[in-house]
Design a protein around this nucleic acid. Structure first.
Lengths: 149, 149
DNA sequence: ATGTATGCAAAACATTTGCACCTGG
DNA sequence: CCAGGTGCAAATGTTTTGCATACAT
C-alpha cells in the first residue's frame, strides 16, 4: 500500500514525519500505540521527530479518519489505524494486551436502545476489562489474537 | 440516609471533607461530576476544602465502592455515586448531558462473547456518543432521563 | 516563493505527592 | 494522645502551543 497516496487522499501534504508515523502504525506488531510509543519507535528508526509533532500528526490523522483515538482507563490515549471495520475492545488487566472483537447483537441493540429514547447515535466505545485465559493458567497470555494486536 | 454511617460502613473515618463531598454527590442536580466540579460546589458552600483532598477522597470512595470513576472522552475523569445498579451511558455531544441506560441483551452478549474467547470479564464501560432528540429540534435537551432502563 | 509543517521549549491541564499541621475518636 | 486526614505547594505525566526555522509544491 502507498502511504503517500493515503495522505494525499486525506488532504494532507506528504511529509517525512507523516509518512513515517503512518509507517509505524502500519508495521507495528501491536496495533494500539500511545503517542509516546510511536515517538520511541521513531527514535529506534533513527528519526528525530519531536514528540509534539507526533501528537500533532496523530491528531490530524484522527481528524481525517486515518486513525482512531481511544481513551482507555489510565489517562493516556492510544491510537489505532482505522483500516479495518469497526470493532470493540477487550483489555487484559494482567498482561496489558488489547484484543478486538465485533458482535452484531451488541451493535444492533445499541441502535435499538438509542432509537427508543430518541438519541441520535453517532459513535460509541465499548471496553471490556478482565483477564485473558492464558494469564489465569500459564501466567502468560494465550488468548487467540484477532488481527494484529 | 445517613452519610456518616455510610462512611463508617466503608471503613473510612468520618471527617468534614468526606461528609461534605458525599453530600455534594448525593444532592447535586447532575449525577456525573468531575473533581473540579465537586471542588467548586464545596466553595459555593463556603467550605475551604483543597482540590487535592477532593481528589484523595474521591479516589478513596472509588476504592471502597462508594463512587464510580469514568473516563469519558476529553481527558478528565468524572465521578458518580455508586448507589444504583450497574448501567451504561449516553453522552450528548451538543448539550453535554449524560444519560443512563441499562440493556439486558447487551450485558448478556458481553458475557457470552467473553466466554467464547476465554476472557474472564471483570468490568466494562460502554459509552454511546450522539445527540439527544431535544437538541436536534428545539435546541435544548429534552430527552427523557432513564435511570437504569 | 510561500504557505504549511516541524522542533524545541514553555505552557497548560489533570492528577498525585511530600510534608508540616490539624482533627477525630 | 496519636494515627490518620488535610492544606498547600511542588512534582508528575500527558498533551498543547508559541515561535523561529525548515520544507514541500
Amino acid at each position: 500500500m502507498n502511504t503517500a497516496a493515503d495522505l494525499k487522499k486525506a488532504g494532507l501534504k506528504s511529509t517525512v514525519p507523516r509518512l513515517k508515523i503512518l509507517e509505524v502504525l502500519e508495521s507495528a506488531p501491536v496495533r494500539h500505540l500511545s503517542a509516546e510509543d510511536v515517538y520511541k519507535k521513531l527514535l529506534e528508526m533513527d528519526l528525530e521527530i519531536g514528540l509534539a509533532t507526533v501528537y500533532r500528526v496523530l491528531t490530524q490523522f484522527e481528524g481525517v479518519g486515518l486513525v482512531i483515538r481511544h481513551s482507555f482507563e489510565g489517562g493516556r490515549s492510544v491510537f489505532e489505524l482505522d483500516d479495518e471495520g469497526h470493532h470493540d475492545h477487550m483489555l487484559c488487566l494482567e498482561c496489558g494486551e488489547v484484543f478486538e472483537f465485533f458482535d452484531k447483537v451488541i451493535e444492533e441493540r445499541q441502535k435499538q436502545v438509542s432509537k427508543e429514547v430518541g438519541f441520535v447515535l453517532e459513535d460509541h466505545s465499548l471496553y471490556m476489562y478482565g483477564v485473558c485465559e492464558g494469564m489465569k493458567t500459564s501466567g502468560k497470555c494465550s488468548m487467540k489474537k484477532k488481527k494484529r494486536g
